[in-house]
Design a protein around this nucleic acid. Structure first.
Lengths: 335, 335
DNA sequence: CTGAAAGCGCTTACAG
DNA sequence: CTGAAAGCGCTTACAG
């Protein structure tokens, strides 16, 4: 059904070798031969078979992106979808095709599947565990991690500087005079939520304050509902805080919803702040103050580095931390 | 670096043919041979080369998903990312790997690229034009469209019943006593926005009302900002409407923001309604009344049908319309 | 500059 | 039930 290089060669009146040379652009070809082949390619709408090409070159120019999540699907995730967008854009630029998989089991299956497809490299995102990591490492395939829940000294990792981000949040809230503070913290097994809370607390301590365990709500997941529930739980305490910091935006939005339903004005009575700077943060009512993560940069840098790894470079930094940035919006702005 | 079937055969003490039979699970193999091969596969962590396999079988079990958009990236799009999630999930179930591309030029390039990769089929989403469609049709590759901006009698198309959806919106708003009404309509070249407006208007007419052109704001794109701007423009008119219907949720959210900034209460003074039922509609303040689209069903059905097409089935429906559903939330609920 | 030959890692009839 | 051979569509030395 599809034409092959043999058809092209025959119709152009040259050998397969010559046809291959002009099509792949490698090796010497006479002007005349080149023209004949190119005309035939045009006429037959010939598309070289990348599969056959890959078989001999041992490169597919395909890359696999696996997003590991425990609960929810992923392409629609407000944070990871941004990273994915950046990867897709960079891929087009570099000439890679991207397989996207979401793995809710955090098993070896997705990696296995893509390994059989002979992808040139892998980008592993979010909830990794050591077993999985060791498994992937046991094959000699280049790979990098983005916002991984765990760290590994041997694997290049792209992540936001969450410790610094936590500090930024605390510093800002204190500077604005918000105290006492409550925190809604995502699952502490996940590196980023752990570090955000840690940074937040460290800054409080540095500034002469402290953060009591009872002022923290440990969320079971990182969704809106947990933010909402946090308000219900924290409110069982006597004192009402001046502001609530959640370790991601979705939970912060849940917090705001909870506050509003209880009749509080945000930020008039209680301010709220998130982390991530997802798209919704800018358009919610009130618009959410948050810590911006360079999602696009992270995604692009990850693919860029993976490309270098694929091309055989070795001396690459093992961790690249992106500097977060404070974004002040209505949810903490009084007057 | 990777083991081949030759290695397996040698180490298991059988021929390549026999090794292939047990690994691919086709053809007769003795118990003894099977066990030897399987043990070797286990021991060497052998992963069959899908590339080589594809070359002979002429099937890759890869499918390409191309999302055509004029302005914005796509994986993070609140509507299409949901469809994509569904496709990814179904793909895992059916054993396909998915290449995801986003094409902002609406050119032939993405399709070309994936055609060279020899994908078994293609899913084309959103902003197609006739030229592109004809191009893809000129190759004998199975493909389906989702929420395409254009229609084609020969191509299987999965879409929401937007005409019915527009009617649902109008019917509901009238029944709740909202009148007069304003509409914020997305670009009319796009089939869905055109049909939503058309259905809305038809229902008004059926009910003895009408929709003047000056009560419609034609948006340049389908983003939040256009909804916001619509309020500024429409407000230059003398009379204030009782409700505003936008042909998608993002614009409706912009409308709400515009109203709130002008000091109106939503829905107290002016109600607002959207279309799509994106995730954020449920958690915004106020939560948005909208028309729900079966995004997950659409994505799954599209891949299911594409799979059938790939497997040679021919007599498939050319269009599958999904029934939209009214979702009432706070933005239109008074008291 | 060009063509014949070998090979990438599999599968698939075909004998045996 | 098993193995040798041919072939999928390319690329890559190697002679010429």
């Amino acid at each position: 059904m599809n034409y092959t290089i043999k058809d092209i060669a025959y119709q152009a009146g040259v050998s397969k070798s010559t046809a291959s040379r002009v099509i792949s652009g490698k090796g010497y070809v006479s002007m005349e031969a080149r023209e004949k082949v190119e005309a035939t390619v045009q006429r037959l709408q010939y598309k070289p078979n990348a599969i056959a090409r890959s078989l001999v070159s041992s490169f597919t120019r395909n890359i696999g992106v696996i997003i590991y999540r425990q609960h929810h699907p992923i392409a629609s995730h407000p944070f990871y979808s941004k990273v994915l967008d950046a990867i897709l854009e960079k891929a087009t630029e570099l000439g890679y095709a991207i397989f996207v998989m979401t793995d809710m089991e955090i098993s070896n299956r997705s990696a296995d599947f893509l390994l059989e497809k002979r992808v040139d490299g892998l980008i592993l995102i979010s909830r990794l565990n050591n077993e999985l990591l060791e498994y992937v490492k046991s094959f000699d395939i280049p790979f990098v991690m983005i916002n991984s829940s765990i760290e590994d000294a041997e694997v290049t990792h792209f992540a936001n500087d969450d410790l610094a981000g936590g500090k930024i949040a605390a510093e800002y809230l204190l500077a604005e005079g918000y105290h006492p503070l409550y925190v809604v913290a995502g699952p502490q097994e996940h590196r980023s939520h752990y570090l955000r809370l840690k940074g937040f607390r460290e800054k409080l301590v540095e500034s002469g304050y402290s953060l009591a365990e009872e002022d923290i709500y440990y969320a079971e997941n990182t969704q809106f509902d947990e933010g909402y529930r946090a308000v219900q739980c924290l409110w069982e305490r006597a004192s009402i805080p001046k502001a609530i910091f959640a370790t991601n935006d979705m939970m912060a939005l849940g917090v705001i919803r909870g506050l509003i339903e209880k009749g509080y004005r945000v930020p008039g009575d209680v301010a709220a702040m998130g982390f991530d700077d997802i798209d919704y943060a800018a358009i919610s009512n009130p618009a959410l103050t948050t810590v911006h993560i360079a999602k696009t940069k992270m995604g692009k840098a990850a693919l860029q580095t993976l490309d270098q790894l694929i091309r055989g470079q070795v001396h690459l930094p093992k961790e690249e931390l992106f500097t977060p940035q404070l974004v002040v919006r209505e949810s903490t702005r009084i007057g």
